[in-house]
Design a protein around this nucleic acid. Structure first.
Lengths: 159, 159
DNA sequence: GACAAATAGCTGCCGAGGCAGTATTATCGT
DNA sequence: ACGATAATACTGCCTCGGCAGCTATTTGTC
């Protein structure tokens, strides 16, 4: 009755994604531990360094992250002297984020650790397989966005 | 030196997995909300019903879940009359989990909601693509297990 | 049989993310 | 120019998962 029962079997896709993500995250955290950083803190640092976002709000939109949590992460990064916060003069609500010298100095090492973790998890993957994986995940995200807003779209179909 | 730099670009695989999983989870939670259950509670209920695990400890191993958190989830499920806990007579430390009648009655509806959410996220996927996705995730998990234990395996390769 | 080690389940504590509320500043309509 | 609306960043509050510690029970060793 439903589209294809083969898809659903046991929600295993969800479990596998959770496990794979947890493995990636905990490996990253454990390898960054000796730098006193969490994976999330590193990710923020990296985005700031790449200029993906210049303010906290942009960063939150870009990373789909809570603004409160972001404030606290930036607190830590600023305490440790890795990031600087400056009130923007163009928009005095906004805080401009900049990499502090210490952050700039440490970033390459951190980035190499992080990419090492990812490489290890993708060991044995061909470039085409990585691309396929990314594309699948992207499609799932898109599907989820279409669905997430209108809860009545899916009715649970049958008994 | 390392396998392929192309893999690493921006850790995007990690981000995509996080987003895809978050989308799946939040959709499941929001659709289960009117039943007063979280996605995690449903997952436990389902495993109990399928006999994947008959005790809390087995359930924790099977789902890679914390024992303390499991206790609290089972508390809720028992309060709501969906699950029964019985001290095992064979091993008086263990608690045997059984689906209560109310749980058994509600499960089909819940399961159909859950599989609907998954189906929606996998809309447009062929069976082969779903299989490939699962296989990729499985391989990442395996790679992570080999690596997670010995942190010095990966040295961060280069600058 | 007695003692050590391991296991099941539970509890308190901690850190992190999500959410609501607040003060400040921008923007838009009129 | 003025007021309504929105946006930024920050702060408590809540919940949840992970961890350490605890008791009761089982298993293994001598």
């Amino acid at each position: 009755m439903v589209a294809s029962p083969a898809h659903a079997e046991g929600l295993s896709v969800g479990y596998l994604m959770g496990r794979a993500r947890a493995s990636l995250l905990s490996a990253l955290d454990s390898r960054l531990e000796r730098f006193g950083l969490s994976g999330m803190q590193f990710a923020v640092l990296k985005h700031v360094s790449e200029g993906s976002a210049s303010t906290a709000a942009e960063l939150c939109r870009f990373m789909q992250y809570d603004t409160g949590a972001m404030t606290r992460i930036l607190d830590r990064l600023e305490e440790r002297g890795l990031v600087r916060r400056e009130r923007s003069r163009a928009d005095r609500r906004a805080v401009v984020l900049k990499l502090a010298p210490s952050g700039r100095a440490q970033l390459p090492r951190l980035a190499s650790v992080a990419s090492g973790v990812l490489e290890a998890h993708l060991a044995g993957f061909s470039a085409a397989e990585v691309a396929a994986l990314k594309s699948y995940l992207g499609r799932m995200i898109e599907n989820g966005q279409s669905q997430g807003d209108n809860p009545e779209t899916l009715a649970g179909s049958n008994s």
